[in-house]
Design a protein around this nucleic acid. Structure first.
Lengths: 110, 110
DNA sequence: TATAAACGCAATCATTCGGTTGCGCAACTT
DNA sequence: AAGTTGCGCAACCGAATGATTGCGTTTATA
């Protein structure tokens, strides 16, 4: 099920729990148990989310004794930001584009 | 199945086809048939994606005769950008901290 | 008016998802 | 050495997902 399926960042952040996990450990690395305490979910459920997040390089593991600290790979978040860039251009020149679209639709109606 | 399920923007952009649709109609409104021609998927499959995207207000319909033009609601995209803001702070801070460290190292060399 | 085109909707199906339970294995603790 | 803790892994289950197929309705066209 969660084998060598190349995980996608967008698919990873689709789940609200995973987004919450990301936000939680953004500033400080945490262990699965510590993370699970912040949610209703069981440790195993959280562990699955951590696995998915790790598979797409959003998280990085750091073993310390028998504990594993999960840390956010902040650079990977920029990938989402990069995807948004194409649309950022649009909403920054919002008024010009709106005029253009309206003109296009009007001319198509003829 | 797709009834009163509160749609989520993040869930909506999880699918690669839907992201492609968003990018395709970002600049110009298009009909389902026209959109479907750009993909391998059938019209019905595309139509379902359009429905999902519309349910979370990422798309807006505009009926013209028997055709329906789907247009990107660019403002909704800002919601993703807004979520990214909390992390943007982090990666900018890290960058500044790096600057500080580098400055400190330099001044220590004197 | 008869036909075709554009589209939404419902039923169906295989696959994936998110969760639980149970287990085994290292690594600490007493 | 014996017990406890932290964790991953595999099996399993109900629900959701993405796609197809078959319809019905409205609008345009011959």
């Amino acid at each position: 099920m969660s084998n060598q399926v190349r995980r996608d960042v967008f698919q990873a952040i689709a789940d609200p729990t995973r987004r919450a996990i990301i936000a939680l450990i953004a500033l400080q690395a945490m262990t699965p148990n510590a993370i699970a305490e912040h949610f209703e979910s069981s440790r195993q459920a959280v562990s699955k989310h951590l696995q998915i997040l790790t598979e797409c390089d959003l998280l990085r593991q750091e073993q310390r004794g028998r504990e594993i600290y999960y840390q956010l790979e902040i650079d990977k978040m920029k990938e989402i930001d990069k995807w948004l860039n194409q649309f950022r251009k649009i909403w920054e020149t919002r008024f010009n584009q709106l005029d253009e679209v309206l003109a296009t639709i009007k001319s198509m109606g003829k």
